[in-house]
Structure formats: C-alpha cells, structure tokens
Design a binder for these strands. Structure first.
Length: 775
DNA sequence: TGATTGTTTGCTCCA
DNA sequence: CAAACAATCA
C-alpha cells in the first residue's frame, strides 16, 4: 500500500510527519481532505496506530462519513476500522456526555445522561417564556434572537449569569442578565443542553473529572481537526484537554476561509497555534488542484484586500480557463432568469457538468427556483427549511422527547394540546403558574395538580387523559423500538387521524413527511439505535449533510458550500447590503468575514464562475423594488479577468437586450402560489397547479428558449394510468424516467411509488404527476 | 376552547 | 408575500 503516490511534496510531508503538533495551512482546493484521509491511513498502516486511538473531527456529519469511507477504501479492507472516531465536535461531545457524563451532575446539579438537546426553536421558546414571565416584550426590550445571541456570546466567553450581572452597567444589560439567569435556570430544570452547552459542559466535565480526562487522554493518541479556522473557544479548550498526554494533534485550516465568527469561531485559534504549541511544525499547501488560473487569481485578488491574514499565494498548474462572467440584471427576477437560462444552455452543451448557484441568504433561492422550474430543470436546494424543522416532525419528536425525559417542559408545552384535546390556554397558564410557584417542571405540576384536584371537571378529564396517554407511551417506549414508538404516537394521540380528516394538500404532504420519519426511524432501529440516539441524530443533522453531490443543479448558501466543489458556479446577489450583508457593514472584522465568504464562494468553482447582481431588488414580496449598488467585491476582481455578460453581448445571452419584454412575459407567467423549496415538493407543485385546470401542452423539453419560455405546465393526466403496474417504466416531467415499484388504488387516483435513478423513491398521484409511459 | 379571520411585521449565516 | 401573532366569534 503506497499512500504517498500522487501526492506533492508538501502533501507527503503533511501525511508522514508523525509525532508532535502539526499545523497544516491548506489553501482552497489544495487537497486537504486527501491529506487527512491519507494521514489516518498512514498512521494505521505504517505506524501501527490502532484505529481506536485516532479521533478525527470534521465540520459536518457528511464530511465525517465520507472521510471514514475514504480511509476504508485506502486501506483496502485489510484493516478493521472499529473504534476509529470520525465525527463532528458536537456529535463527539454528545456521545461523550451520554456515555461518561454522569459525574457532570456534581457541577451541574440535576444533570443526567438522559439530557435533551434544545435546538434554536426550543431556545426561542424558552426565551419567549422568560420574556412573558418577566413582563418583557420584543419591541420594547430586545429581539428574541438578539437576546439569544448575546447569551450565547456570554456563554462562549465563560460568563455565568452572575458574572454577566456583575459587569452589567446599564439597565438594559442588567435586565438581559436576568433573562440570561432565568434562561439557564429553565434549561437546567428541563435537563436540557443547548448547542453551546454540548461543548461547554464537555469541557467542564473534562476539567473537573480527572478520571474521565485521563481515560480520554490515554485513549486518544492522535487527534485530527479539520476546518480548524472555524473552531471556537470551547472547541479549542477541548483540543487542549484531549491532548495533554500525547501532543499528537494535527489541525488543518485556512484563515482565508474562516466564516463562522458569528458562531463564536475564533480566528486566533489558527493564527496562534504555533504559540500554543511551540514545537508545532507548520506545512503550507499552496498548490490548487481545483480551479482555473483565472478563477484562482480573481478570488485571490478579492481576499487580498483583507488585513487579518497570514497571507499565502495559491498557484495552479491548470489552464487559464474562461473569464469570470459578470452579469448586471435589471432586478431579481431577471437575475434568476439569466441564471436559469445560462444553466440551461451550459447543461445542454455538456450534461456532465454540475452547477451550483450560491447566495448569501436563503430567501434568494426562491426566485431562482421559480426560474429553474420554468425551464423545467430539476434542482436540489440545500438548507432553507429543513425536514426536521417542519411542524409535524417537530411535534412527533417532541412526543418522543417527553417520553424519554418528562422534565422537558418546552417539548411538553408543544404537544400538550397538539392535536387539540381540550387543554386550552388558561389551563396551561394555570399549570405554568403552579409549576413556577412550587419550583416544579410542568409534568410534575400536572401530576400534583391532578392529585390535588385543582382543575375544573372538563380540564381535569382532558389532563387526566393526557397523563394516561404519555404514561402508556412510556411503557411502549420501554420495550419497543423507535419506529414502533413513533407509530404508537401517531395512532394513539390521534395525530394521524386528525391530519387524515383534513383533505388539504398540505395535510397530505404532512402525512407523507411523517411516513418518511417513521421510515427513518425503522432504519435507525435496524442499526440498533434507540430513541435517544434517534433524537440526537435529529438534533445534530445539518443542512449541509443533505448535499447531494450527484445533483446536476444545486442551490445553497455559500456557508453550506464550504468544502464542496462544482465545475460551474454562480454567485447571485452581489449587492452592497446583501453581500456584503448589511449587518456586517459596520465593523471592519465583519466586512473581512464577508470578503472571506466571497472568497470561499468563488473558490468552489472549477471551470466557470459567474457573478451576478441586480440593479433593483424587492425586499419583501409585495413591496416595491429598491435600487441597489453593486457589491464592492465585484470591483475587487481585476477587470482583465472578467467579461460583462448580457447588456453588451446580446449574442451571449439574449435576456438583457429584451429586459423589459422579459418582464412583461414574466409578469404574466409568474406563479403566485405557495413556495416550494425542495425537489421533493416538485411533484406536489405540479400536482396543485394542474388541479382542475385546462392546460396547454408543454413546450418540447429540449427547446432552447430565446427569451423566456412560457412556464412548463403539467402534462395532461395520462389516460393510460390504468395500465401502470409494478414494473412499468414511466416518464416524469421533472425526474425523468423511472420504474413503478408499488401501486395503491386504481386508475387516475392511483398512488404510485416510483423509483427514479438519481432521485430515489417518489410517491406520485397518477392523475397529477403528468406521467407518460416511457420506452 | 378552538377555529377562523384580521393584522402586523419582517431577511442573515448554522451545529 | 407569508409566517406569527392578536382578536374575534361560534
């Protein structure tokens, strides 16, 4: 096994330098994932390091899975990788706390290893409750999110509510200190940890509990940390605490790609590594294997405007490539149409090219999605509104949380009257008041109040039924696997029945989502996961984990694009106030971070890069357009590396020349219904549009629109749907060819489960999906 | 109590 | 425009 083959000399050095701290400064596209995976394989193979002595930390779960697979592949199956830990910091901490966290109770009273994880929505619910209790409101005091971010900042800087109160000078800060205090109190009472706590409490445990610390130090002989530039203070301390015995820590990062300071990432961690570990060896990877010379030079010129950096020069042996395309659109719609039109042409030329459309904020995806739909081009959106954020999913998960941890009052509040079971606002308030007075969690309060017969008869019956329900579910949970528990929740709470009674398309998709959740649970159960692990997974999945690298067109924020590469990249919305974002304009450091973000975005491109901006953009859906100033980043790209598209070169793209004409036709065809943000919903999209309406046949799919094609309407219902049986091959307007794997019902109303290569299983209603029998 | 309607207000980025 | 909240009515 030769792990050094195909590596350049710096990469080799990074792989083979063993013993002592190592800092790898890896520029964009310099093959750092490759270095890490090869290094792990090398440690195991050449140095006989047992896999269970190695811990590698990555930024996303997906990156972790991939890294593991790549190491496995490198070692060619001749080693078992049992015990090798590759995960995110957060997953690592959760596992550590669940396994060895019992003694944390000594420093965090009430803590048990069954703790719940509070995500941002839960945190918001806590803050809202605290505000309500203190008689504060968002308008006169502070926005919920602002308060949360201040609290998070304080926590990450090792401030307790007490410290905070002591250092508070003005009344507002003092008030916030009280909010902070109560926020922490409520989390403790619920035995819940927020995302900050997961890291912080692990640090505290390791500091306080010498046995655990020693055990982990002995076990971990080699620690590797990816994306080191985005670690925060607790992650840094964790690294220090875990490398006390062996100092074999290898960190890989690039200060030019630090884009998470708002999450506490501290760029000093990487800038000061050599000071923290005086015997550290530093290796620079400066050869880029990803982008063309032009793209690299353009991105480098932008980031060169930053002052806070070590400074490095990336070079590539690759071709010069085409110039960076810059397009000035009239407005957001026109920008989206330009992007869709250009993608359509590029993909028609070379279907193997994958394209990414990157943007600063999620809301920008909407218009681009609409434009792509009009061109009939399937796409995948990463992030935005994720599966686990949907109300129905959160509801069911809240039931699970309450089942596992009765103290979890936030989840309890969520489900106490969902579906409606006669426990109204006033009853809930009564319970809350009682709980507060007697220092109980809500569940305890309910039980006690029932015993003391404190409710009017109607409320009492409802609450008694609720208590029974939860207790029954708990009994089921004690013996049954997760998926069975979810089924029980869906059935016994009447949740599913309530949804099924509702015949809106919305309710229908909710049922499907729940179906999906149950499937996911069944898979988890097969892997031997319990409820707690399933919940952990749901809490720790990231948007970026859902990236589909096969997708031909991906829409995602630049943040989510970190670590990825695409042959063709568009960055949309390069306007002052949007990118750089308005909230970063005030401070120099905020500005520099935006610039790094721009650098990250640009360096995702392998062959072709387009930067677009709009002269007018609407802030809110219905409002009027506001004029925009082109982003400063556009002018930081040297003019000789760019070419203006549209306006001056109608041959290149016809849209600009016809801008106003385009707008006319766009106005007529704009779809004003619900927004859909993922490919999964496209079938539904077509379905709801086709309902009860006469529609013209769609344009031929491959037609090259000169200006803007009419929206691709759904194809008329296939008359032949009666013939569709298991095994039939059909043609879908979006997913292409697929095979029917299951059928429920007959004729036009038949529900089909179809397997589409590249998209997986999709459930379709024959009548609405616009299917044709394929050849 | 709970569903329906009316009104307001708002857009970072994310594990 | 659309979610979130408030107010109103059954």
């Amino acid at each position: 096994m030769d792990f050094l083959e195909g590596l350049n000399s710096q990469q080799r050095e990074a792989v083979t330098h063993v013993g002592g701290p190592l800092l790898i400064l890896a520029g964009a596209g310099s093959g750092k994932t490759r270095v890490i995976t090869h290094r792990i394989a090398y440690l195991i193979h050449a140095h006989g390091v047992p896999p269970w002595n190695i811990v590698a930390v990555t930024f996303t779960n997906k990156a972790a899975d991939e890294m593991r697979e790549r190491v496995e592949k490198l070692l060619g199956g001749s080693y078992s990788l049992r015990g090798l830990v590759v995960s995110t910091f957060h997953s690592f901490c959760v596992r550590l706390l669940r396994r060895d966290g019992a003694r944390l109770a000594d420093v965090r009273p009430g803590f048990t290893r069954d703790f719940t994880i509070y995500d941002e929505d839960d945190q918001l619910a806590v803050i809202k409750a605290v505000y309500r209790h203190l008689g504060l409101d968002e308008k006169h005091f502070m926005q919920y999110r602002a308060a949360l971010s201040r609290i998070s900042y304080a926590k990450n800087h090792k401030q307790t509510p007490d410290d905070f109160l002591k250092s508070a000078k003005d009344p507002k800060s003092r008030q916030l200190g009280v909010v902070f205090e109560e926020y922490e109190g409520r989390l403790r009472q619920a035995n819940a940890l927020d995302f900050d706590d997961l890291l912080l409490e692990t640090v505290r445990l390791l500091q306080f509990d010498e046995d655990t610390r020693r055990a982990y130090n002995e076990r971990i002989s080699h620690l590797l940390i990816d994306e080191y530039q985005d670690t925060n203070r607790s992650q840094y301390e964790l690294m220090r605490l875990l490398t006390q015995t062996h100092q074999n820590v290898c960190v890989v990062g690039d200060e030019d790609q630090s884009i998470y300071s708002w999450r506490g990432a501290d760029i000093r961690n990487i800038l000061d590594f050599e000071r923290d570990y005086p015997d550290a060896v530093t290796i620079r990877l400066e050869q880029n294997y990803r982008s063309t010379k032009t793209i690299l030079a353009a991105a480098g010129a932008v980031v060169a405007n930053n002052k806070e950096r070590k400074g490095k020069t990336l070079w590539t042996a690759g071709p010069a490539g085409q110039k960076v395309g810059i397009y000035q659109a009239l407005d957001g719609e026109n920008e989206a149409l330009f992007i869709a039109d250009t993608i359509d042409r590029l993909i028609s030329d070379d279907p193997s090219d994958r394209v990414a459309v990157l943007y600063r904020t999620n809301f920008q995806s909407r218009q681009i999605e609409e434009a792509l739909r009009r061109y009939g081009r399937p796409y995948k959106v990463v992030g935005g509104f994720s599966f686990y954020q949907r109300a129905e999913i959160k509801d069911v998960l809240a039931y699970l949380k309450v089942i596992v941890s009765p103290q979890d009052s936030i989840s309890l509040l969520r489900i106490i009257n969902t579906p409606a079971r006669g426990i109204g606002k006033s009853t809930v308030e009564q319970v809350e008041r009682y709980a507060l007075e007697h220092d109980l969690d809500l569940w305890q309060a309910i039980v006690r109040m029932l015993e003391e017969k404190r409710f009017p008869t109607r409320a009492e019956a409802a609450l008694e039924a609720f208590r029974k329900l939860i207790e029954e579910l708990r009994e089921i949970a004690a013996v049954e696997p997760v998926d069975a528990v979810i089924r029980a929740v869906l059935d016994r709470t009447g949740y599913l029945a309530t949804l099924k009674r509702d015949d809106s398309p919305d309710a229908e998709s909710r049922v499907e989502n729940l179906e999906e959740l149950a499937n996911a649970a069944a898979e988890a159960a097969e892997r031997g996961e319990g409820i707690a692990e399933f919940l952990d997974h749901a809490a720790l999945v990231a948007d970026a984990d859902s990236v589909d690298e096969q997708a031909q067109i991906s829409l995602l924020t630049i943040h989510n694009a970190k670590g990825l590469e695409f042959p063709i990249v568009f960055i949309a919305g390069l306007e002052e106030g949007l990118f750089p974002h308005i909230r970063s304009l005030e401070s120099e450091s905020g500005m520099e971070e935006e610039r790094r973000l721009c650098y990250v975005g640009m360096t995702r491109a392998q062959k072709r890069l387009f930067l677009t901006w709009a002269r007018y953009r609407r802030r809110f859906g219905g409002g009027h357009s506001e004029p925009c100033i082109p982003s400063r980043f556009l002018s930081e790209v040297p003019a000789e590396l760019t070419e203006a598209l549209g306006r001056n070169e109608p041959a290149e793209v016809n849209l600009a020349a016809e801008q106003f004409l385009v707008r006319e036709s766009v106005r007529r065809t704009t779809y004003t219904g619900k927004t859909y943000n993922s490919l999964d919903n496209i079938a539904e999209f077509f379905a709801s549009r086709g309902r009860g309406r006469e529609v013209a046949p769609p344009p031929p799919p491959q037609a090259k629109p000169v200006v803007v094609p009419p929206p691709a309407p759904p194809k008329p219902a296939a008359r032949s749907s009666g013939k569709l049986t298991t095994g039939s091959v059909i043609q879908h307007p979006v997913y292409g060819r697929g095979t029917v794997v299951r059928r429920e019902g007959d004729g036009e109303d038949a529900k089909l489960t179809v397997s589409f290569p590249g998209y997986g299983l999709k459930k379709l209603i024959a009548k609405y999906a616009g299917l044709k029998t394929g050849k």
